[in-house]
């Protein structure tokens, strides 16, 4: 659905994006991760056709973005981090402007606008002037504008910034829904814990290079899949620590406070259940035992890219 081949973007003598290669299939929510200045926004702007790349190919739905940008644009929805808006328009007029720009037929526009206003929870603001909207509401309105042409490719640059918890929950729901409906979604964010909940693939960028790209499972595999476990006990902590230290498949055991310990465990599900059984057998009173895969933040740090700002 989105294919980027050998993309390079230069600003004067500075190379912002260096020979980038990745693709996003339909139904995939792709998180573009990297510190400030890593080239995420430049990559997104090049995909959108807002930047002329030095060289490289970008295909949207198989259409060459540089050869036929107007045709490719029909399939893209875009939402920036801080949405500027026309302050002299009503909410419905703003959506109508972009619905018409994406060739939504006049006869369907009224219904389409109402549908998306409902989706983002702004129905009661339909006839309000835009200056009367809060920042979070503007972000939601921008999301509605992005989704109105029912794009096959949705590009979101820091979409959650400025949204209240309710808006973030809505965004998460909509992202998951878009993925389920077969849309290719590219999303950049600094809030990795949130992306963890709806991204099925990621690309980690650093200084203009794509360090790693692919589905989260593949990357975990590639990085040496290490699951970590958290255990909370009511006593016999010394026994527990000693046991875990001696266990050949356990390493990096760290106390987390409140009788809680965290450690990495290499082994399949059967080995995990045997580990828990052995702990219980030693008479250690276990309150909780949680096995977790590495989240995006762990992967990001493990890959060794600079800290997110």
């Amino acid at each position: 659905m989105v294919e980027v081949k050998g993309l390079r973007v230069d600003y004067d003598s500075f190379c912002a994006v260096h020979d980038l290669e990745f693709h996003v299939e339909p139904g995939v929510v792709y998180g573009l991760i990297g510190p400030n200045g890593s080239g995420k926004t430049t990559t997104m702007r090049a995909i959108l056709g807002l930047l002329e790349p030095t060289y490289g190919e970008i295909y949207i739905n198989g259409i060459d973005m540089q050869e036929n940008p107007d045709e490719a644009a029909k399939y893209i929805g875009f939402m920036p981090d801080f949405p500027p808006m026309y302050e002299d328009l009503l909410v419905w007029e703003f959506l109508d402007l972009f619905a018409a720009s994406y060739y939504v037929p006049k006869s369907q526009r009224y219904e389409v606008i109402d549908h998306y206003l409902d989706l983002v929870g702004l129905t009661e603001k339909r006839n309000s002037f835009i200056p009367g909207l809060s920042r979070g509401m503007r972000q939601r309105l921008m999301l509605a504008k992005t989704l109105i042409p029912d794009p096959n490719v949705v590009i979101l640059d820091e979409p959650a910034s400025g949204m209240d918890p309710h808006g973030r929950a809505d965004l998460k729901r909509i992202m998951i829904e878009l993925g389920q409906r077969g849309k290719a979604v590219i999303i950049s964010s600094h809030i990795l814990t949130e992306m963890n909940e709806f991204c099925s693939a990621i690309g980690i960028m650093e200084r203009g290079h794509m360090i790693v790209s692919g589905s989260i499972d593949d990357i975990r595999q590639k990085m040496g899949n290490q699951e970590h476990c958290e255990i909370r006990v009511l006593g016999k902590e010394d026994d527990l620590q000693h046991f875990l230290k001696e266990h050949p498949q356990v390493h990096s055991c760290k106390p987390m406070g409140n009788n809680k310990y965290r450690f990495h465990f290499r082994g399949d599900e059967m080995a995990t259940s045997q580990l828990l059984a052995a702990i219980v057998k030693r008479g250690i009173p276990v309150v909780s035992f949680i096995q977790q895969q590495e989240n995006l933040e762990d992967l990001f740090l493990k890959i060794g890219a600079r800290q997110l700002s």
Binding site: A73, I76, F78, P80, Y86, F98, S101, Y102
Partner: peptide, 14 residues
Amino acid sequence: ESTILDFHRVTPLP
């Protein structure tokens, strides 16, 4: 300056 123009640039409207 406000970058709204970018929204128009990415629409299929010539």
